[in-house]
């Protein structure tokens, strides 16, 4: 569904991503793990058109989207839950969600939107409870759910999440990952960028390891989990101590 080839992205003269290639097939959960500053957020922002690549190709459903504006990319079915939630703080929860359905409204799918709204409330009951509360007053975890719900309201075929666990308490993180796994189970296609490598690899089918803007390793998620270098570098395991 998504094919990235030889993507080069730079901020001014500073090269951030180097000849990066990856792909996401329909129905997969793919995760990209890597340390801070490895370039993960840059990658997602480039795919959605918030940044322009210097060279390389991004193909979404066989169509080249590298030079399209963000709104066109979203209307083609590629949604992003951005880093740091980024909800519309001064608007209530319900309006945030309805704004997320902009592309659906444009397609004249009013009824679907309201059905989707109920579905999102079903996925995140707390959002229904706080339906009329201003989004800025929600807790971090609730805002994250709102951000995910907002992205889902667009009815995307591919949903990308940028560090959904960042800054959240461990219990909430569990919930968030359970929801991502649920999305995958329902047949959705997910690209998950995460610093919390362990949780991400546990729910993903495949993974890529990003280091300094380059992919250094890819493979089935269980293989990456078993890879001891990954364990040491990203899972924080003291592998030697465990084996004594």
């Amino acid at each position: 569904m998504l094919k990235v080839r030889n993507l080069d992205v730079a901020y001014g003269s500073l090269s951030v991503l180097h000849h990066l290639s990856l792909h996401v097939k329909q129905g997969e959960i793919v995760t990209i793990i890597g340390a801070n500053g490895a370039g993960k957020t840059t990658l997602l922002r480039t795919i959605t058109g918030l940044l322009r690549p210097r060279s390389g190709s991004i193909r979404f459903r066989e169509e080249e989207i590298g030079s399209l504006p963000t709104e066109n990319i979203v209307s083609r079915g590629c949604s992003l839950v951005p880093e740091g939630r980024q909800v519309f703080a001064a608007m209530p929860v319900r309006e945030n969600l309805l704004l997320g359905a902009y592309v659906q409204f444009k397609r004249g799918r009013r009824e679907e939107v309201h059905r989707d709204l109920e579905r999102i409330y079903g996925l995140f009951p707390v959002l229904k409870q706080r339906e009329h509360q201003l989004a800025g007053t929600l807790s971090g975890g609730e805002q994250q759910m709102l951000a995910i719900g907002r992205a889902l309201m667009a009815g995307p075929s591919l949903i990308m999440l940028d560090e959904p666990s960042m800054g959240l308490a461990p219990l909430i993180v569990k919930d968030i990952f359970a929801i991502v796994r649920q999305l995958g189970k329902e047949g959705g296609t997910v690209l998950l960028v995460e610093q919390n490598a362990r949780s991400a690899l546990r729910i993903a089918d495949r993974g890529y390891v990003l280091e300094n803007g380059r992919i250094v390793l890819e493979g089935a998620a269980e293989n990456l989990l078993a890879n001891r270098e990954i364990q040491r570098a990203y899972l924080g395991k003291d592998v030697d101590a465990e084996n004594k």
Binding site: P82, F88, A154
Partner: peptide
């Protein structure tokens, strides 16, 4: 409120 987030809503 948030231009990027708005763009991401389409």
């Amino acid at each position: 409120s948030n231009r990027d987030a708005a763009a991401l809503c389409g």
